[in-house]
């Protein structure tokens, strides 16, 4: 897989540090599943985390801390053992399968207009993660952003004025970017998009319809 558009270093650092909100973490984990470069970078930033802990401040422990820890170790494990199910080969990378199941056919889509369909994922925080299905050749209306928007292509491709994005590519955009992504003419495009605030559509009609469509 040839990937041309990667996560920014700041995002990889925050993901490795564990300080990213869930929806951004999800798209970072999905991209890293597909991209060795970003996986290597994330692993390096985790090593940085190890150095930060090793070099960091100590806090005095309770007196019987070790004994209590040994007691936890001896206690029977609560709940069922975690069973890691092997992920099925799918358009959906493993971290997304944890939210949506393995089969793209089982995704519960909702029409949002102009043939575009979406499925919003349950994540904590003020961000929204959604799977988007854009029919071949379709343009998603020109819009600005309320904050940081990340889009990861899972199938097909789209282009906007900043470039072309194929499978595995992630677009990192902020409010300064106004774009009209257009799916390639020969194949439907499926992508995961994470936004920090509702997209603001430019035309009055689109603005009026926005709450209705839920985009």
């Amino acid at each position: 897989m040839s990937i041309n558009h990667h996560l920014s270093e700041g995002l990889i650092l925050a993901y490795a540090a564990g300080s990213l909100p869930e929806a951004y973490s999800l798209i970072a984990a999905a991209h890293i599943s597909m991209c060795d470069d970003c996986r290597a970078a994330a692993t390096a930033y985790e090593a940085l985390g190890g150095a930060v802990i090793d070099d960091g401040d100590s806090a005095a422990l309770c007196q019987d801390s070790l004994a209590k820890t040994f007691a936890r170790i001896s206690a029977p494990a609560l709940g069922l053992p975690v069973v890691v199910t092997p992920k099925a080969p799918s358009v959906l990378p493993a971290p997304l399968q944890d939210y949506l199941g393995a089969r793209l056919e089982d995704v519960k889509w909702r029409n949002v207009g102009m043939g575009v369909r979406q499925c919003v994922l349950k994540t904590k925080g003020s961000q929204t993660a959604r799977l988007l299905h854009i029919p071949a050749g379709t343009a998603v209306p020109d819009h600005g952003h309320g904050g940081l928007e990340l889009t990861l292509v899972l199938k097909g491709a789209f282009s906007d004025k900043t470039g072309r994005f194929g499978v595995g590519d992630v677009e990192v955009a902020d409010q300064s970017v106004e774009h009209t992504p257009v799916a390639d003419p020969d194949m439907d495009c499926i992508c995961l998009a994470v936004t920090d605030a509702p997209l603001r559509f430019k035309s009055f009609l689109q603005r009026a319809l926005q709450p209705f469509f839920g985009i």
Binding site: E9, L11, L13, A14, A17, Y45, L48, G49, D174
Partner: peptide
């Protein structure tokens, strides 16, 4: 900031410049 707080949107989009 990365390990003990949240990075700003601008910081998330930047290169970190860390020697890794």
């Amino acid at each position: 900031r990365a390990f003990f707080a949240d990075l700003s949107h601008a910081q998330l989009m930047q290169e970190t410049g860390l020697p890794l």
